Simulated scan of single mutants.
Amino acid sequence: MKKIMMILSLLLTFAVALAGCGEEKVTTKPAEEKNVKIEKKEMPVEEKEDESIANSQEYLRDMTNVLEDFTVILNDFAELSTQAGQNPYVMTTNDWIMDTAIVLTEFDTAIQEARAIEEPENPELLRSHRLIMQAMDEYQFIVDNYPDAIDNLDTDLLNECILAMSRARGYFEEAITINIDVQETL
């Protein structure tokens, strides 16, 4: 019973950590467009600036689209974690197990989509992009380890997932601040 109470407490903590995630937006540029660029030596200064602005705007748009989907998945994951935190026995139901497996698969797909976005040229956006990739590493840890933590009632591993969620949230908050600042200058 003590272990179930510990799991309950950790799941509630996890749900609270998840509840703070969401609504972050960022963007990137498709690889095929990078190959079409005109050599920079031949471009007048104004065209270089226009291309740099276009690159930044495209990055922000693309990353925003991916992260909007990501936010929906995080919210679904938070809901499932909250259900488990409120009633640990729900983790034994086929519905909860299936829903969690689906969300974790969607989570993994969204992580891969974010990683597929090409790094931006803008130095500030590049800093933001790298923070987002650090967040994706933390989320990947959760995708890889959350099922084992739940299946084995491993409170230590569940706690590590909670810490990974917290670190990811911090990376996202910093990245979003950078992106907002860059958007205001474009």
Rank of each mutant, 00 (worst) to 15 (best):
58 E>R: 04
64 T>P: 01
85 G>H: 08
73 I>Y: 02
57 Q>I: 11
111 I>A: 03
67 L>K: 05
70 F>N: 08
86 Q>Y: 11
110 A>R: 05
100 T>Q: 11
77 F>R: 00
67 L>I: 11
81 S>D: 00
64 T>F: 01
65 N>T: 12
57 Q>L: 11
91 M>W: 03
109 T>H: 08
101 A>E: 14
65 N>G: 05
71 T>P: 01
59 Y>E: 01
74 L>Q: 10
56 S>I: 03
73 I>H: 05
67 L>E: 09
101 A>T: 15
87 N>F: 10
96 W>P: 00
74 L>C: 06
62 D>R: 06
89 Y>C: 07
74 L>E: 08
73 I>T: 09
83 Q>H: 10
84 A>C: 09
84 A>Q: 06
50 D>W: 05
101 A>R: 14
91 M>I: 14
62 D>M: 03
98 M>A: 15
104 L>A: 04
52 S>K: 11
62 D>P: 01
59 Y>P: 03
87 N>H: 12
84 A>L: 08
95 D>T: 15
95 D>N: 13
53 I>T: 12
56 S>W: 00
68 E>D: 12
63 M>R: 02
70 F>C: 02
91 M>D: 01
96 W>L: 11
103 V>Q: 06
85 G>L: 12
103 V>E: 07
96 W>E: 06
102 I>T: 14
70 F>H: 11
75 N>Y: 00
101 A>K: 14
58 E>M: 04
73 I>E: 03
90 V>P: 05
61 R>E: 09
59 Y>G: 00
99 D>A: 15
106 E>Y: 07
105 T>N: 14
82 T>H: 06
54 A>L: 07
73 I>F: 05
50 D>M: 09
107 F>K: 08
61 R>W: 02
67 L>S: 01
77 F>E: 01
68 E>R: 09
85 G>I: 13
105 T>G: 13
108 D>E: 13
84 A>G: 12
80 L>E: 04
68 E>Y: 07
55 N>H: 10
90 V>C: 07
81 S>L: 04
63 M>W: 04
103 V>T: 15
52 S>F: 01
58 E>K: 07
59 Y>D: 05
110 A>P: 02
66 V>C: 02
78 A>Y: 00
54 A>Y: 01
94 N>E: 15
85 G>W: 10
94 N>W: 04
72 V>Q: 09
78 A>C: 06
103 V>I: 15
102 I>W: 03
109 T>L: 07
65 N>H: 11
101 A>C: 02
61 R>C: 00
73 I>R: 04
66 V>D: 04
108 D>M: 06
80 L>I: 14
83 Q>K: 14
